[in-house]
Design a protein around this nucleic acid. Sequence first.
RNA 1: GGGCGAUUAACUCAGUGGUAGAGUGCUUCCUUCACACGGAAGAAGUCGGGGGUUCGAAUCCCUCAUCGCCCA
Length: 1028
Amino acid sequence: MDKNFGAAEAEARIARLWEEAGAFRAGANAKPGGQPFSIVIPPPNVTGSLHMGHAFNNTLQDILTRWHRMKGDDVLWQPGTDHAGIATQMVVERELAKSNRRRTDFTREEFVSLVWQQKQRSRGNIKAQLDRLGASCDWSREAFTMGGAPGDPEAGQGPDFHDAVLKVFVDLYDRGLIYRGKRLVNWDPHFETAISDLEVENREVQGHMWHFKYPLANGATYDYVERDADGNVTLRETRDYIAIATTRPETMLGDGAVAVHPSDARYAPIIGQLCEIPVGPKAHRRLIPIIADEYPDPAFGSGAVKITGAHDFNDYAVANRHDIPLYALMDTKARMRADGLPYEESALIAGQIARGEREASDVSQINLVPDEMRGLDRLEARRLVVSQIESEGLAVLTDSADGPVPHVESKKIMQPFGDRSGVVIEPMLTDQWFVDTARIVGPAIDAVRDGRTRILPERDAKTYFHWLENIEPWCISRQLWWGHRIPVWYGFDLNPGTFRDETGDDALDEIELGDLLLQEGFVGPEPRHHCAADFAAVADRFAGDLAGLPTPLNHARVVEVAGAEAAEDAFAQGLADYNLTQDPTRLVYPVWRDADVLDTWFSSGLWPLGTLGWPNDTPELARYFPTSVLVTGFDIIFFWVARMMMMQLALVNEVPFKTVYVHALVRDEKGKKMSKSLGNVLDPLDLIDEFGADAVRFTLAAMAAMGRDLRLSTARIQGYRNFGTKLWNAHRFAEMNGVFAAPRAPGIPQATAPVNRWILGETARIREEVDAALDSFRFDGAAQSLHAFVWGVVCDWYVEFSKPLLSGTDEALKRETQQVMAWVLDQCLILMHPFMPFITEDLWGSTASRAKLLVHADWPTYAVADLVDPAAEAEMRWTIALIEGVRSARAQLNVPAGLTVPVVMVEADAPARAALARNGALIQRLARIEVPTEGAAPRGSLTVATPGATFALPLEGLIDIAAEIARMTKGADKAAKEAASLRARLANPRFVASAAEEVVEETREALAAREAEEAQLRAALARLSELS
RNA sequence: GGGCGAUUAACUCAGUGGUAGAGUGCUUCCUUCACACGGAAGAAGUCGGGGGUUCGAAUCCCUCAUCGCCCA
């Protein structure tokens, strides 16, 4: 054997071994009747690459997966990737940009096909990276959240996710759980799409707060009075304006009201009055009402807030409460609108609405952006608005060194940014599709409350509840090209009105057609829409809609066109053709499909069901659903976990998983969250290259304390790489000593020597510890126990103890030790395998001929009760104490390390004598002493005290008596101090009365031991002081 | 502003009622026939401050301070 494990060479070789054996296939190594154990991987972004968070996440899943597989459970770890709408579209657009091309240079179909090609190119990344990590997922079942969608070159090879997603949309739509509405949504002006509030990152940035005056209508005035906390008047003046503060002056153009708090006495006199927005051409200044609402904070700014319902979420709520119109000011790129009615006309209509002279029904054509600002960027418009107000003297002034100046505060403000685009998000009034989450959230809350799904750590259940209990409608439409296109088609809302086919000839002549088409309301203002999984189904619905129309319009052929404009043309063309030919087959009813796609999370919300083949009734679905465990980061509890819970419960009325293990984040060395936009992402492959996958995995597991972020340091990884080497060299030692060559009986070896009986017991302890830790998802506990056992027990002690036995002359003892060591090392490999799969599999294969790969080895079930021999354990503890005592004394007194010294047993009780007799060989070797003789302590000797015995190392002349006195005094003092503390505790009657009996007993024993130790050391000290 | 969490050895972190632990680093010694990615022996913490509950508190409660995260 080499001195080190060659990770780079071995990892690839072993991965191939597993692959060729189909070792990770669903159900591999399952015992007859094995319990199902299933995990779905949190699907990584298909065009992405794995960062440390993924490495962490997948290491934990793999540990659980390998552990259960070895236990003989029927295991499935389901892998796959996510189509990641915006992110993937962005990757392709960025690629195109390199050759100066844009998405819009292509048709939608062409572009989507480019994305599929990109997906083909990059999806191997994820698998290759997971393979490097040793992730034992069943790649034969790889799934993709857009599998089977139009254009998928691999359609039919995996689960048809597209089918499932559309089915769910249609199902929820039919149940009234999905609706379309014009709502204020977060709009990303870079990607020109709506995004959900979870995709918005609120960041504090440096901003400004401007203070402006809104003059009261018709020059009205009021007494403005400010009071201090005691009610004393601190300011009284007559004002003809109301002051507002804003961080976004450009939105003033769309103001619909000024709001004050109903309790705010300062403004009570003017509630209900009108005031003037101080921007825009003077001739068409708009008046807006001053209203009372709970929203404004009287203590903030002036206490008065301008209400711009179409551009702020808080204002939107106020506007809805007070029926204030929502005037949109910006286009999809967040530039000031240039469409709609001219400013003058818009201002006029808005004024009529404000005065109650006109209904505020559809205000979308009203564009209150003054002509000179139309098309400007929002920030340019802001500058213009500010300068206009200031030049007109309507800014609130404040004193400065140069006299009064406009009051502009520099302050930190919270601003929303798109988490992908990084641009400032604009609240935007648009038509979108929503899931009525309030109606499906109940079962998701109940399932966790009643324990059908358990969230670990428990604290994260609070986050889950908090979010679900305050859930907002979920905007699921995205204005993208890459994604599941919404299965909704639109067509004109045609109404026969009062038209009758007077001629009764089931045909329409030119006059009749004219009567029909020109009558008011023939085409309704909003298109009709129908939802179905495909065009054929939806065409039937539209055909049904046409039934009420006069013949032959009621038999118009439903055809699909690109959009509303194409539909107008097609419809007109059909009518014209019919009119010319009277051939009813020329009549068409054109419909067009919704251009939007679904939020990626809508499809990944189906992940557990969809990957298992739902809606088909597959054997895997029956076997592995609900899944056993979901392992995921806390940052997507809302995004994903909660939505999966809601969706699976809404669809099949079952929870998607029984346990959710929520892990913390892997942070960078500064404790910052790793993110693509920050560019501080670490590549786990670099670490694997440097230290090996086993070391990286073990480190992550050892640091996986529940609910706490981990900061990865390479020093720690290196430490666990060394740990792997340690394990390796223990095997190398065993090989050199014939351990693997010796004949072996199956099962747990019989042992007679205390050292062998002892290590069997220690192995049983560690097996129980590891199982208990993994049962409770304490990955760190399991890793640390294994580390302490393999290094601290097996390598430090058992291997050392074995040396004199393996090289000794007692052949029976030698054979026994070889067999026990072979077994113990096998147990190390088995128990370590879920954590360090590569090195253990390699050693497993190279140290014996095996019936099965280690990945399929049987996980042990032996217990402490079966294997621990208390007598052997006590004896070995004593042996270790003696060796450590001798070593410590030697080292502290600078006895040369290589020198074998004589030893005299000064006193010893029966157990100590027995232990010495049975373990003399190991003690002599490890402590470097000669065969002990019995007698009084010679002059000038070192003293070593163990429970029940005192030994002396006669080293007169070699040692410094004063140093020995100091050492002994220190030891005696320490024992005395501890004894005193124990004595005090036992002297307290309330301790004896109220503490558990075994605690009291332990304390008594500890006291006795300390007292005995002190006595031994004092006696030795007395002898020493005679010398000096 | 609301919520959650953290504060333990020089560093990174375990440890939820019974004598303070790990990895790395540090000191001294050892190239002893598994391993220098090693061995042996050490030094090192008033467990953030204060108060309380308890026979007993790093651990439970209160409070303060500092830091972090999430939400507004």
